[in-house]
Design a protein around this nucleic acid. Structure first.
Lengths: 252, 252
DNA sequence: GCGATACTGCGTAGGGTATACACATCACCG
DNA sequence: CGGTGATGTGTATACCCTACGCAGTATCGC
């Protein structure tokens, strides 16, 4: 990854914020950072993150592999830039008069949608606290929606981390299961049924009575009226309930 | 990854559960699956997941690279086996008379500790629903601790997924930040201060008033009495509050 | 106007990865 | 005892990232 440079900021951060003085000395540049990131996103969207190699991206951008390194210090930095580009700007403020809970809920759902559009990017590793432009903007937006809670900054920051973390990991879980399903060439329904079968086989021994009961209940083999999105909403509401309890406790 | 075989179970699952008939035809085996997994864990613990390559593991186990493929269908399957080995058996039942909330809390903390002992393994991708032996045992233990809630199986399963997911993703977040800190050769304190500096620089423009206020509050530059573990506890209690609200609502 | 300079894109090369395949060897089964 | 199949190993393929050197080009200082 791009090391510290003189200015104190990591290289990819400066790139993302568009700092970085590029004096016009040599030949004109034929590519652009934005173009490269977009090419990388095209590759990722079409073939998944594992297909995002420097040579593949270079081909997509219409240049040689090594040309990319004139724009990006390393592949890791490119991935970080992809992440922020995909995130995009946060949603605008909620309707006036919206309570903090509903506002936060909207926020989480918006994030879920953004991630849902490019779930392949979820495997890009997080390398530090949020410093990229869009990421910072989302933080700001989230904090603003928590104004009505009356909580101090530290607690609000913790809550925001908790909420975005939840959205992220749930989306990752859903995506992992879906891609595993796709890789096995089955339908969701088929996977659920198979899971029930495996669990049934595995719980035969008499240990695992709880699981055995669930299998016997045919929770997996019945047609699934419980989609992953339902699971997401369940957890989200649960989390918001927890936040609400805290807010009420602090307010009293 | 190991494909389906005749029996219907993925290969790594059969391996983990110790099914798999190995008739004694050829030469005696010089290695063992357990030994290989343990060698891999030694490598991972010492040098991180990225160092866990087939050749490195083979060297650690005292064999050639290709010998491993006589025991494991692919690297992916080896990683899955590592994950379950590290998980180990779940904690025993709580003290008699313990309420469901405290029981679940203990459960989560136990999971956090197990993960905390080998955080490098968190980057191993999840490839499907939980079917490995220890994973299934943890599920069973978790479900049992929710007996007192009086909720139906589906809801309890959702809650368990939520809780274990939370522990996992929080641990991952903490570990990512810590390893980023270590990679940059700084202390936690230094990173926090630097983060404050970056945020200050970035929020200079007048957008981001919320963040600006936080920076001005010196939330980052003050000596950190708020450890990552505190953050973990915060989120955990928040989640349990949410669960409790649901249980109470269902009970009434 | 004219170097000097610095930046451009690119080709090569080196070291890393996973794993398919062929091969000699060994231990059991009939 | 011969056949057979499993074992461990070496080789080969096809990738990956990126350090380095090179030729060409656009600007700056004089």
């Amino acid at each position: 990854m791009g090391e510290e440079n003189g200015g104190g900021l990591p290289e990819s951060v400066e790139l993302a914020w568009g700092l970085r003085d590029r004096p016009g000395k040599g030949p004109k540049r034929t590519l652009s950072l934005k173009g490269i990131v977009e090419a990388a996103i095209r590759v990722g969207a079409a073939e998944g993150l594992e297909a995002v190699s420097m040579s593949r991206v270079a081909a997509e951008a219409g240049a040689s592999t090594m040309a990319l390194y004139r724009y990006v210090p390393s592949k890791g930095d490119l991935l970080t830039l992809i992440l922020d580009e995909l995130l995009g700007p946060p949603p605008g403020p909620p309707e006036p008069g919206t309570g903090w809970r509903e506002a936060l809920r909207e926020f989480a759902v918006a994030l879920r949608e953004v991630i849902g559009r490019h779930p392949w990017a979820l495997s890009i590793p997080i390398t530090g606290p949020p410093v990229m432009p869009n990421n910072v903007a989302w933080m700001e937006a989230g904090l603003r929606r928590m104004r009505g809670t009356g909580l101090d900054s530290g607690t609000r920051l913790s809550m925001l981390t908790l909420l975005t973390g939840y959205v992220r990991f749930t989306a990752a879980l859903i995506h992992d299961l879906e891609s595993a399903t796709r890789a096995a060439g089955k339908t969701d329904q088929q996977v659920a049924v198979d899971y029930g079968t495996v669990l049934a086989a595995v719980t035969e021994g008499g240990d695992f009575p709880e699981l055995r009961a669930i299998v016997a209940e045919q929770l997996f083999t019945r047609p699934g009226d419980d989609t992953p999105e339902d699971e997401f909403e369940f957890g989200l509401d649960c989390l918001l309930d927890g936040l609400e309890a805290r807010v009420r406790r602090a307010g009293g």
